[in-house]
Every structure is written in structure tokens, then in C-alpha cells.
Design a protein around this nucleic acid. Structure first.
Lengths: 347, 347
DNA sequence: ATTTTTTTTGCATACGTATGCAAAATTACT
DNA sequence: AGTAATTTTGCATACGTATGCAAAAAAAAT
């Protein structure tokens, strides 16, 4: 008895069936296994038949079935990247990472698949991993909780965390040097004579946020500037989330002369607000961003920022996960990637 | 400078094998087929055993093998979206499309996979299709040639073209109403008193470009304004590709008072150049964009633009390809999606 | 209690590929 | 030539799931 099929009568009509090794074998009147071996470069197949097989494979437009291959080999040669495509910041940041990641994947003969995650399907990632759709997964930043990480660890599924430090030496991660970037930016601003420097942060506590904040505070202390809680304002990842905090800063009795934004998209918001208030950047207020996103070039002036080597980060993440996939005894690694202050027009 | 590394000591040992229906069967001392039927909602399995199966499936953390499933069913329930992630415009545009596409895919119980394409692997798409990794594919804009399309047609592989008109009624496409958008933008500018309106276009000839150009020219004619070849300048998709053309326009003896950019990213470039030349937007020069991308909010003032309902386009594309996948006799459809002029600060 | 009907289970097989092992064909060696 | 060594081929099976069909079990009808 059939299960109830909601989606009509599934007739797949006359979709052209693709060729199989069986077709090649039949065509040449040899066995499937010989064909398979020829295609996979086994040494125990004669040169003559190998060439024949190759030729007819091309002739017939043969393409191995991914499903069959995956099933048989127990792997897919695919690396998954889950990302919330509805968050602008994520998209912008990752569009910097992806080119490096794609290139490196291809060097390893692997493919990078981007899965879109949505809030209403939190277990999606584990399902995909357990279903064997991918051989390894990249966890981006704050999207995953410790429970997910524990599960992946206990099932020995290869993964690497990007953009966040996990204080657990079973976990590999790649993270930009937030602390140093923060220090660099602050020292530069202080050098420029700024004493009242605002800092926008994320409300949650995690290592990425903490490191930046610590850099900010340490640099202040180093310069003998007193910490002012009014100058530390929370921001979010949503569009325009830099607007409210900036407005708030401008309403202070003693507003800042420089604003260190949590990332470049926030810096864009900050500049928008400043300019809307007829304040000149950088003459009246200096602005500094973080990440080195494309958005930094979209304002006038361009945004001074702490630039991450995004391409390189993408490359390293893939290299690490590839090692995990290929060598099950791979030791975890923690990488802190140097960042660089890029001075443009906003300071 | 090398990244700092610290090495942990967790090794990944033997990967844990995932559970199969066989495991469930053994656990309950029943046959595989009964388990399979229970899981797939067949009516010919007793309620008692079904519940037992479901329970132990959860207990054991069972997740069906994607590969085995795909092989057996001859489908993957995945829709592929190939895109060149190294082109900023593509990423920006698609980040508007994707949320709608993802949501709709999930409604159909399908998954959207984003494949990254690179110039050095043009046949990648056909390989992926033939290998059966996906059930259907979305061709974005100008990335694919007629040969690819012919091949997909002849192999009866479901696909839909997005952002470009293909004058072939075997091919389904979804395209925004470029012509009407262009007309709307131009009429508005002309209403505002502009007579010298520049137009930036793409150098290639295709329906998307032609429609916009035709709208521009028709609107001019309608207003009795003579066409000036100097005001029509080519742009590309690369970053900053709006800069040179704008410079060129400003060097004209009789520069334009309004610039109609090919898309919002170009408009951003245009505004950057204008402001760098101490020209005020919109007082000295008006600027209008196309698409309604996020970038339009990153400038001061915000960019007046012809806004596409990106979310809806994403939805329709998926609906159409889903129909093709489910019903092989699905007839092709051509959809022209209405666009809307959104007036912001740059005009 | 026996037969008939209905419900529930399990056997066998297919999907396409990969691979150990034995069989066949070829070559090399007495 | 006959036998041994080597190369080349094909058989059989596994990967995990899905499903037609027959067998078994249970329920219903005589």
C-alpha cells in the first residue's frame, strides 16, 4: 500500500535517463567492473580497453551518478557552509571569505556548498551532517550553540569554527586577531589626538566581542584615558542598527570626537547619521570600522578600517577542514589571523 | 608574518558510523522493509510497530542516508543555484533573491543549494546536473550561453532562467520589467525638469540591457529630447566600474544634470565621483539607480531607484522550477515582474 | 473448526558504483 | 611443447533505501 502522496501524481515522464557504466560496458561488450576500473585508473586494466572505455564514456556523455558514488564511497567530497542569508552582515562578510574558500576547495578536489539556514529550522545542520550530504562543515561565528558543537564532536564529524574562539582544544577554529585590531585602531585614534572615543559593541558576551572591547579598554588605559560608560553602546546585526546608537551618542553633553564601530556596516550607519546631522567626517568626527568590507568604499569619505585578510581566512578554513576529512587523526588547531589597520578618509 | 598556531590533542579516530534502517530493524527484531515502510508512512504497517520504529529511530539518532535515498529514488529534492560569488553585483542582487527562494523551496520540501562557479570551470553546471546532484537548476542572468541551454533542453533537465529574456518558448524565465522601470525613471527625471540625462549601460547586447536602453530612448523621444551619444556610457560588473564613466561624463562640455545608472552599485560609484568633485547630489546632479539593493542606503543621500520585488522573484523562480520537476509535462512560462520607482534623496 | 478475507510482515531485488577475489587470457620461462 | 608467472577480465557483493509481491499472521466470516 502506497503512502499518501500529497503532490499529485508524480509522473516523471520521459526525462532522459543518464548513462551508466553499464551502458558503456554493453556498448563495448565487456563487464561493468572493467569499465569502472578503467575509469578509476586501476593499473590492472589493459591500455587498449582503458582507451576504448574513455572514448565511449565521452561519446555517450557519461557522467558518474553522484548518489551511487557517494553511497559506495561513503563520502561526497563536499564541504558545507551554513549561513543565514537574511543577515546582511553575514552575506557581506562571507562574500569576502568565499572566493578563497572556493578556490582552495577546488584544489582539494572538493566542492563548497552553501546552505541557507533559517531560524525555524535549527536542527537542519545536524540533519545534513548525519545524512552524509557533506563530509565536513564550517560553523560561522555565532550561529551555533555549544550543544551542536558537542554533538558534532561526539559523532566525530569534521567541522571548523570561523570567527569565534572556542576555548576547547578538541575544536579547531580560525579567528581574526580582534584584540590586536582593536588596539591598533585605538592607538591610531589616540595618536590623532582623540580623547573621547566611542565604541559600539554587540550586546552578547562572546570571545569576539570581548576581545575587541578589551582592546578598546586596554588602549584607553595605556593612554591614561578614563573609561566612560556612556561611550560604549550596543549594536546589532540588523540593517540600520548603527543608527540609534549614534543618535544616542550625539545627544550626549560631551559627544565623542571619534567613533570606533563594531564593523564596517555599522560604520556606514554612523557616517550616515553624522552627515545627516551636518557633521563633517573626519573634520568633526572621525569614524573607524572593522573587517574591511566593500561597504567601506561606499561612503564619502571611505572608511578607515581594521582589515581582515578574508581571502586567506577562507583558504585556511578549508585547508583545516580538509585535513580533518582526509586524516581522521588530525589534531585540532587554533589560528589567530593577523589584521591590519587601513587608513582611508574617515579619520 | 605567520599566523600563530596552537595545537590541541583531540584526535578524530574512527568516524562513528551512522545508523541505518538495518540498525533499527535489528534493534526491534523485524525486517528492514517493515522499518522502511513505517518510516515512509505506508499504510500497511501496524500502528504498534510504526510507533516502535519511530521511537527507536529517534532513540538511535537515525537519519536516512542522503546518498542511498537519492540513488534509490532517482532524485535529490535539491535545487541548484549557480552563481559567481566573486562578482559583487551578483552577490548583492542574489542576497535579495535568496530569502524568498529559500523559503519557497522549504515549502516544497526541497533545499536550495548555492554552487559557486568560477571562470575556469565552465562545464561544471552540466556535470552537476548530469551527475544528478540536483533536480533542477536556476540560471542566473548572463552566466550561461545558448549551448548550455540547448543541452539542458535536449536532456530535459528542469531549469529556469532568471533576469534575462530568452526568446524561446521551450524556456521558462522570470525577468523584471526593465523597460517599464526605465520608462518610469526617465519620466520622473524629465518631470523634474532634466533635459540632459546620462545613461550607463552594459556593453553587451542582451534583452536586459536592450530593454533598459529602449526605455531610456523611448522616454527621451516621448519628451522630444534629442538623443546624445555622449550621454550613453558603458559600465561593467566589476567593483568601481562606475567611476571611469562618470569621470568621462563630467568632462563633457555640457555635462548631464541627471545620471540614470545601470544598477545601484553603479549609482553608488556615480555619487562617490560626484561628491569627490564637490558636486552636490541632488542639487547639482540627480542620480537614479536600478534594482533596489541595500547599497542604495549606504550613500548620503539615499539613492532613488527602480525597485524590483526581489523576494517575490525568488519565490516565483522556485515555484516554476518546482512545477517542472514535479510535472514533466509542465509547459514553460515567461514572467515579467512589475517594478516600482522608489523616490529617495538622490533626485 | 475451517475457510475466507484482511492486515501485517519479510523476501528479493533494484538504483549505479567500487572493489576483493577468482577465473581467464596472455606472456614468459623451462 | 608444457608449465609457471603475469596480466587482464569478470563474478559477486556491498553501500542504504524503497517497493512489488508473496508469505505469514490475524481477524472475520462461515
Amino acid at each position: 500500500m502506497l503512502p499518501s502522496k500529497s503532490i499529485g501524481e508524480m509522473d516523471f515522464g520521459q526525462r532522459i535517463m543518464s548513462k551508466t557504466i553499464q551502458d558503456i560496458a554493453q556498448h563495448l561488450d565487456i563487464s561493468k567492473s572493467t569499465v569502472s576500473k578503467a575509469l578509476n585508473g586501476y593499473s590492472d586494466v589493459s591500455l587498449a580497453t582503458r582507451e576504448l572505455v574513455m572514448k565511449t564514456a565521452i561519446e555517450l556523455g557519461y557522467q558518474p551518478s553522484a548518489a551511487a558514488r557517494n553511497l559506495r564511497r561513503g563520502r561526497t567530497d563536499k564541504i558545507g557552509l551554513f549561513l543565514n542569508t537574511s543577515i546582511d552582515y553575514v552575506v557581506d562578510y562571507l562574500s569576502g571569505i568565499i572566493p578563497g574558500a572556493v578556490l582552495t576547495s577546488q584544489e582539494f578536489g572538493k566542492n563548497l556548498l552553501i546552505y541557507t539556514i533559517t531560524d525555524n529550522n535549527p536542527s537542519h545542520l545536524l540533519k545534513v551532517c548525519r545524512a552524509g550530504e557533506i563530509d565536513g562543515v564550517i560553523l560561522f561565528s555565532t550561529h551555533y550553540d555549544t550543544e551542536t558543537i558537542e554533538t558534532l564532536l561526539s559523532e566525530k564529524f569534521p567541522f571548523v569554527v570561523m570567527g569565534r574562539e572556542i576555548q576547547d582544544n578538541r575544536v579547531s577554529y580560525v579567528v581574526p586577531d580582534y584584540y590586536d585590531g582593536s588596539i591598533q585602531a585605538m592607538r591610531y585614534l589616540i595618536e590623532q589626538g582623540h580623547r573621547r572615543i566611542a565604541f559600539t559593541t554587540r550586546p552578547e558576551l562572546n570571545t569576539a566581542n570581548d576581545a575587541r572591547l578589551k582592546g578598546y579598554l586596554d588602549a584607553l588605559k595605556e593612554a591614561g584615558i578614563e573609561r566612560d560608560e556612556n561611550l560604549i553602546v550596543p549594536t546589532y546585526l540588523e540593517p540600520d542598527s548603527g543608527i540609534q546608537p549614534t543618535e544616542k551618542l550625539l545627544r550626549l553633553d560631551d559627544p565623542p570626537t571619534a567613533i570606533f564601530a563594531f564593523h564596517d556596516l555599522i560604520a556606514v550607519d554612523v557616517i550616515r547619521v553624522l552627515q545627516a546631522h551636518q557633521l563633517r567626517v573626519p573634520e568633526d568626527v572621525s569614524v573607524i570600522g572593522f573587517d574591511g568590507l566593500r561597504a567601506g568604499f561606499m561612503t564619502m569619505p571611505h572608511i578607515t578600517t581594521v582589515k581582515q585578510p578574508l581571502q586567506y581566512i577562507g583558504q585556511r578554513v578549508i585547508e583545516i577542514i580538509n585535513q580533518q576529512i582526509e586524516h581522521s587523526d588530525y589534531k585540532s588547531t587554533h589560528e589567530v589571523i593577523p589584521v591590519e589597520l587601513v587608513i582611508r578618509g574617515s579619520t
